[in-house]
Design a protein around this nucleic acid. Sequence first.
DNA 1: GTGCTTGCTTGTAACGTTTCAATTCTTATA
DNA 2: TATAAGAATTGAAACGTTACAAGCAAGCAC
Lengths: 340, 340
Amino acid sequence: MTASMKDVAQAAGVSLGTVSNVINHPEIVAEGTRNRVRQAIKDLGFVVNASAQTLRAGRTRVLGLVVPDIGNPFFTEVAKGVDDAAFAAGYSVILCNTDEDSAKEDRYLELLASQRVAGILITPARETHAAMTRLTSREVAITLLDRSSTGLDACSVAVDDAAGAGMAFDHLYSLGHRHIVVLLGPDDIPQIIERRRGVNAAAAGRLDDGSLRFVTSPHMTAAAGESTMTQFLKEQKGTFTALFCANDLLALGAIRALRAAGLTVPRDVSVIGYDDIDFAASAQIPLTSIRQPKYQLGHAATELLIGECEDPSSHAHQRVMFQPQLIVRESTKAVRKPRK
Amino acid sequence: MTASMKDVAQAAGVSLGTVSNVINHPEIVAEGTRNRVRQAIKDLGFVVNASAQTLRAGRTRVLGLVVPDIGNPFFTEVAKGVDDAAFAAGYSVILCNTDEDSAKEDRYLELLASQRVAGILITPARETHAAMTRLTSREVAITLLDRSSTGLDACSVAVDDAAGAGMAFDHLYSLGHRHIVVLLGPDDIPQIIERRRGVNAAAAGRLDDGSLRFVTSPHMTAAAGESTMTQFLKEQKGTFTALFCANDLLALGAIRALRAAGLTVPRDVSVIGYDDIDFAASAQIPLTSIRQPKYQLGHAATELLIGECEDPSSHAHQRVMFQPQLIVRESTKAVRKPRK
DNA sequence: GTGCTTGCTTGTAACGTTTCAATTCTTATA
DNA sequence: TATAAGAATTGAAACGTTACAAGCAAGCAC
């Protein structure tokens, strides 16, 4: 069994309280005693028991990070920002990967609650969920990641999805594209709703009926993007010259499908992605994309959350909104035969 | 403050012990009582306090996962395998990203020790470290990930790096390449040592002196690969027709450097990577690579570790070794002017 | 009626910390 | 020399849970 403070106390010939003082308030204990205790700690390989500390203190220095897909480099970058900010503040992070599954999300939230984490960073898989409102009613601080807080009593750090989607549309439109397909993810993902809204707003009155088509992929992954696009190409009527994908993974998958169908990017179809993950630049056709400040997103959210944890009374909920940025690469070109 | 069992007991008009029984041994409490208690639990939103449980039980159901770079899709895949296996067994995972930094690794190991995690999965940044041997002397179970246990009293799950590197060399050799550059990472990373060994073994006696050159990148990232290769191309004397990179990220970076220098892949230089991350297939030039069973690696290691945690006495340390696999894509071609 | 089971329920100790009031020991001051 | 003040140390309580010995009815066999 691991050594406890009691063992240390015995070894150093002092009382339990003195050991605790050496650890937490070294300045109030006499130098000789202090050294004796420190030696005993070293000899026994003593490490404080965080559970006991937590139980006593009623609070932890652990955060929960709940993301829908850690396989997506977007979230990996976000997670790095979170990790760095947490580590710097002496917090540790429990990573929870929900696979876009609400049931798994619920189980993880329950687990985080039982761990009495100080706070939770979450990109909800679906619209704000019962389990989450239940959580905010307790003393757990919550910060929404990559998602604006609507109706929920919490901080949020997000990127303007509607604006980004608008940028993507404008870019394609300005290249002369008038027949555009938009490959989205599941309709109930908040980001998807926003990006669809952004496209619709930007397109309003500028395209003929039926010239803007939406396709839905069941997941936000490259594999799902590829199969959805393959299916679409098989069934589609009418033509299109540009494709906007709701994230880069979908775009990479879709490009594979386009090539398999004998179409060349960008000659036959221009493709624009979203997120600007690292690999977008090294892709088969370097991908035009909408860059999101991923690392900053995670970092800022974590600092906000820790701020709330450390001083809940003076904390006012904030909504931070970053702006996305268009990165033009080789996957988008002016349309070959512009139509009116 | 969150409700405790005592509150539940009071609300349901029973004793503390009965509440505990309803939660842990529901079959031994009378149906009426059981329902009353369950209702109270629901009403108060009670969730057990994991710290108190841990303190009492002396053990947690938490694992630590320590990796050098979560930004590398290789480790992301491994982490998914870990997460799935852990979740299935009712464990949760604290993810620790060390950035290949031994000091950060030490701090994380200390943290995991204070959390009294049941076990630790680790891909050590450097050769087996003092902190780790210190840990094994306690009751924490350790499993080495992607790294064979040499001298350390622990389980390990790895992929045969020397064999994989040999495959890569053989592939290039069989395509007629006789002037080969190997882009490795830091010399003190165990995988690098093994892969260098594999190349040397495979090359033994088959190449002229100076026809096999090693270059060292300071990090295993695309950015580092790009700058190291740029530098090498500037300074190099002599020519080469093939490049073997110690992982796919380095390869993607190196390809960018080659293109910037006016070289075409695979016409001027064949490139082979290592890991076969998802993006290798969608890369600018689809990358020939050595596939490692990433997900299985994480999954198998976690099951092994949990096995040890649940029943330490009957546990015998194992070394599991997976075999890698050559995946040929477009980045490697037969040499244009084969030399003898 | 006595003694036994059986089925439920209860009270208490223990896990390892931290905090804080109480205590002891020094040393300086009147 | 007696006393106050200050410095260093101690002991006990509390955090929330679980396990377990003990208690208490109610039902049954004799």
